[in-house]
Nucleic acid binder design. Structure first.
Length: 422
RNA sequence: GGGCAGGUCGCAUAGUCUGGUCUAGUGCGCGGCACUGGAAAUGCCGUACAGCGGAAACGCUGUCGAGGGUUCAAAUCCCUCCCUGCCCGCCA
């Protein structure tokens, strides 16, 4: 959510930034119209309430009924007027808030213009888009042949875009999750285990709503929603709280499954385990002082890159352009790993600084100095890493000519010492 | 699922029956000041958040779990919902 004061004071600059995303300024104008009307109504109704408070107090001191009656009658009318104005005020407030929630975040000055993901500049790379010394197989062929991925069983249980991991496949994923968590704990993140379902408010806070409503699973009866990413519960961990500056920064890592209907991408990536309705992810999340948040974004990116590096996967990092930048993000890096079987770079992490966007929605503040006024803090999130794609990259990079898979060194302690899947 | 008891200022509690003197009291914690060689103890003062107006000082409005209602006036009365604790039932 954007600061209403910014819209009031620099509407043209905000519209200019929106124009870079092909968004026109209609919503900005709507917010401002509401804001004007809201303040007019507010002034009037507060004046009446002040009057009523004063007179009501005076009435309580009057003994004589003859003196009280006319005052009470007068206040009855004032009361009617107040309830009328209050209703109008509530309505205009709701309209303004709804419009404000529809507004995307403004981009950081570093963000380049671009039409889509093809125009994201690569800013860092380690390793190459290498060819293997034999014809590389895609992970779905490797996985099925080894009996570690079963697509039919997934479909039988839950329909298309579901799969079952078996044996060392399931164990490899579990080992990777465990290793990732332990790595991030060493990097200074505090592990949290959260509910995998949340109230609707949490999805507004993190910015999933209103935009991705159609992409979310929900239980009508309880009003709870399945999390599409750990970012959602973690954002709201401290919602409506004021953190002391001394507590910051707060760094969390959370493992959760993620549930997405993926209707927005129907028909894309139908083969393999790249894009399913359910996947696992280890997520890093940082609550930072605003003046520290961009240094924190660089650190977050390095922490994500470290995962790929230690797993021995070729990776590169891109800076997202306007055409690919997420709704809530001010600046995002994507980390991609090379998958030789599919012959493509796979996004395994997206590291974003959303600045105050989520903090405002979650009403999450910190106190810069003891006794100072609370301010919204900055939040950042980054995968570390997304599991299916990491598994894809592991299978495809560590495959051998005979279709067996070498288990990366770092994962072996988590696999009971197993060095090879065959 | 049924019953009972609760939800008040950072924490703990008073206030709710009997609506107005609640500008929500008190204790603890926290901050400042005084006293002190320094400290403890003690005393005094202060101690929420948001919105609106204002250059500021400050003022007004709202917030006693949430929402609605009654009333000139609601922490207090009524309704709905949420949460917590305890008891019972059921059950992975």
């Amino acid at each position: 959510m954007l600061d209403i004061k910014l819209l009031r004071e620099q509407p043209d600059e905000v519209k200019r930034q929106f124009a870079r995303f092909g968004v026109d300024g209609t919503l900005v104008d709507r917010v401002l119209v509401c804001d004007e009307r809201r303040r007019t109504l507010l002034r009037e109704v507060e004046e009446l309430k002040a009057q009523r408070n004063t007179v009501s107090k005076a009435i309580s001191k009057l003994r004589d009924a003859a003196e009280r009656e006319p005052q009470i009658a007068a206040m009855r009318e004032v009361g009617d007027r107040i309830s009328l104005l209050d209703k109008a005020l509530t309505q205009v407030e709701e309209e303004q808030r709804a419009a404000l929630l529809e507004l995307r975040n403004l981009p950081h000055p570093d963000v380049p213009d671009g039409k889509d993901d093809s125009e994201n500049p690569v800013i860092y790379q380690e390793g190459e888009a290498r060819q293997l010394p034999f014809p590389a197989k895609p992970h779905w062929e490797l996985g099925e042949a080894l009996g570690i991925i079963n697509f039919e069983q997934g479909v039988k249980l839950a329909g298309s875009r579901f799969y079952v991991l078996r044996g060392l496949g399931a164990r490899l994923q579990r080992a990777t999750i465990q290793w990732l968590l332990d790595l991030h704990i060493r990097q200074g993140y505090l592990e949290v285990y959260t509910p995998f379902v949340v109230k609707e408010a949490a999805l507004w806070a993190s910015g999933q709503l209103p935009k991705f409503r159609d992409n979310l699973y929900r239980d009508e009866e309880s009003g709870l929603w399945l999390v599409p990413t750990a970012e959602v519960p973690v954002t709201s961990l401290y919602a409506d709280e004021i953190l002391e500056a001394a507590q910051l920064p707060v760094h969390h890592v959370a493992y959760t499954p993620c549930f997405r209907k993926e209707q927005l991408s129907a028909g894309r990536d139908v083969r393999g385990i790249k894009r399913g309705h359910q996947f696992d992810k280890v997520e890093m999340y940082r609550f930072e002082r605003p003046d520290q948040s961009y240094a924190a974004l660089e650190q977050l990116r390095r922490d994500a890159e470290e995962c790929a590096r230690l797993l021995g996967l070729p990776f590169r990092t891109k800076l997202l352009c306007t055409g690919d930048l997420g709704f809530g993000s001010a600046k995002t890096y994507d980390v991609e790993v090379w998958a030789p079987g599919q012959g493509e770079w796979l996004e395994v992490s997206s590291c974003s600084n959303v600045e105050t966007f989520q903090a405002r929605r979650a009403n999450l503040r910190y106190r810069p100095e003891p006794g100072a006024k609370p301010e919204f803090l900055h939040t950042l999130n980054g995968s570390g890493l997304g599991l299916p794609r990491t598994i894809i990259a592991l299978l495809e990079n560590y495959q051998q000519a005979d279709g067996s898979i070498v288990v990366p060194e770092v994962l072996r302690p988590y696999m009971g010492g197993i060095a090879e899947i065959r």
